[in-house]
């Protein structure tokens, strides 16, 4: 698995972070606005947001003194690529399996 996909999976592995992603799907939010939705400290929320950013699931934009958190629609690309890679692996292996069997048994 490539590094970004792994980071994306790690980011999604936590229920709080999945809830944050769901919130940000509704609208862009500051750290404070995200924190209002959870029974946890602002630094704890910030930590979750950092992991989501590392997983490329959100982007953080500085707007004046605020930091706006926004969902990154491209963030799932790494996951898509990962699945496509496995898909291609099996397509090639299965095509080869069919070719080999049919060629070798024809000569029997």
């Amino acid at each position: 698995m490539n590094q970004t996909a792994e980071a994306t999976f790690r980011a999604l592995a936590d229920p709080t972070r999945r809830a944050i992603v769901a919130l940000l799907a509704e609208r862009d939010l500051t750290i404070g606005a995200v924190a209002e939705n959870f029974d946890m400290t602002r630094p704890a929320v910030k930590k979750h947001l950092t992991i989501l950013e590392q997983g490329a699931l959100i982007q953080v934009e500085a707007k004046g003194r605020e930091r706006i958190n926004r969902l990154n629609p491209q963030g799932l690309q790494a996951v898509t690529d990962w699945v496509a890679q496995i898909d291609l692996f099996w397509s090639r292996r299965l095509d080869t399996l069919k070719d080999i069997i049919e060629r070798e048994t024809k000569n029997d």
Binding site: L12, A13, V21, L76, V79, W82, I86
Partner: peptide, 13 residues
């Protein structure tokens, strides 16, 4: 199992 269960919950596929 190629995509972790948690990711499935997020309807990634």
């Amino acid at each position: 199992g190629i995509v972790p269960e948690m990711a499935e919950e997020c309807a990634i596929l």
